[in-house]
């Protein structure tokens, strides 16, 4: 089994394409950093005074009873603003200033999220179909190894690649962030409203790792979708194209079908588990345990299907 994994890794990392993907990722992180650095809004000389005035206003609004009804849900947002301001004043950090940690978070959430998914889908979509289109599947299946082990080694190597790509992204974004914006900001609070409307906070480091954690769940599912598609098609380019397409169509579908009650059963509505911690669920009535259960069911079905197809497959009787 370790030998098979070594083979899969050799095929992955001895291939130029893999390193082009990594390179693109690194380039985008650097480019985003440089752009953010050059477009940083200048810090006004009296930012502290502005914040103090803003705080006083917010405090007034929060304490004056007759305004409360009108404020309604905005109350929480005001509290978030207040807490953020208080940190910035006491730590002498001008608002909206980038730090290594805020940059890494920015990268994770905006620049990289979709790209990471697409890159992982490219590798996973190719990993089985590529052997079929190259004919090399015959090398794998005519050796004293079970089809189970061969498929498992491929699945694991794809997962490892996702982890490697995530780790590289994280490391490079922290490095670039530190070079461009300085190493501070690790203990800056990320203030947020949780699903039940409470205002909570955690530090930026915790927030960054939480985001990567949630992203791993979604990547795991992405890998599994693309992997399944890869076992179905004999052409690796078709498998890659369909994998990426299905990711986009799936996400769009969730939004388009929001009015239907069964929308929440779509895999893509459940991919982002962060919704239960940070902003409240996408669709009313969804819960964390509902999403986890749905994900597990999808996972088991997709893995089962991949294995079934691969094990039954007649090689080249077209």
């Amino acid at each position: 089994m370790l030998n098979l994994l070594a083979n899969e890794n050799m095929k992955l990392y001895r291939r130029l394409r893999t390193w082009i993907l990594v390179l693109i990722m690194v380039a985008i992180v650097i480019l985003t950093g440089v752009l953010m650095k050059t477009h940083e809004s200048p810090v006004s000389a009296n930012w502290k005074q502005t914040l103090i005035t803003q705080d006083q206003l917010i405090s007034q609004q929060l304490t004056s009873g007759h305004h409360l009804a009108m404020l309604g849900a905005n109350k929480a947002y005001l509290e978030v603003q207040l807490k953020t301001n208080q940190y910035e004043i006491s730590h002498n950090v001008a608002p909206a200033q980038n730090t290594a940690w805020s940059f890494a978070n920015e990268i994770e959430q905006r620049a990289i999220g979709a790209l990471l998914t697409v890159f992982v889908a490219i590798v996973a979509g190719d990993i089985v179909a590529g052997e079929f289109s190259g004919g090399t599947i015959k090398l794998l299946l005519t050796r004293p190894q079970t089809r189970n082990k061969i498929l498992l080694s491929k699945y694991i190597s794809t997962l490892l690649f996702s982890v490697v790509l995530m780790a590289i992204t994280l490391a490079v974004s922290l490095l670039v962030g530190t070079i461009l914006f300085g190493p501070s900001g690790a203990d800056a609070p990320y203030v947020y409203i949780n699903a039940s409307g409470q205002v909570l906070q955690m530090n930026m480091v915790a927030y960054l790792f939480a985001n990567y954690g949630f992203n791993s769940v979604s990547l795991l599912m992405t890998v599994t979708i693309a992997f399944m598609i890869s076992t179905i098609f004999r052409s690796s380019s078709v498998a890659i194209a369909i994998s990426i397409l299905s990711l986009f169509i799936g996400n769009t579908l969730v939004e388009v079908l929001q009015s239907y009650s069964w929308d929440k059963f779509i895999l893509f509505a459940n991919l982002n588990l962060a919704q239960y911690f940070f902003n409240g669920p996408l669709i009313q009535g969804m819960t964390l345990s509902f999403s986890i259960t749905t994900l597990i069911v999808y996972f088991v079905v997709m893995i089962g299907l991949s294995w079934y197809i691969f094990k039954k497959r007649d090689v080249a009787l077209t």
Partner: peptide
Amino acid sequence: ENPELYKYL
């Protein structure tokens, strides 16, 4: 049929 090889290796 044909010898199958990984051309990029």
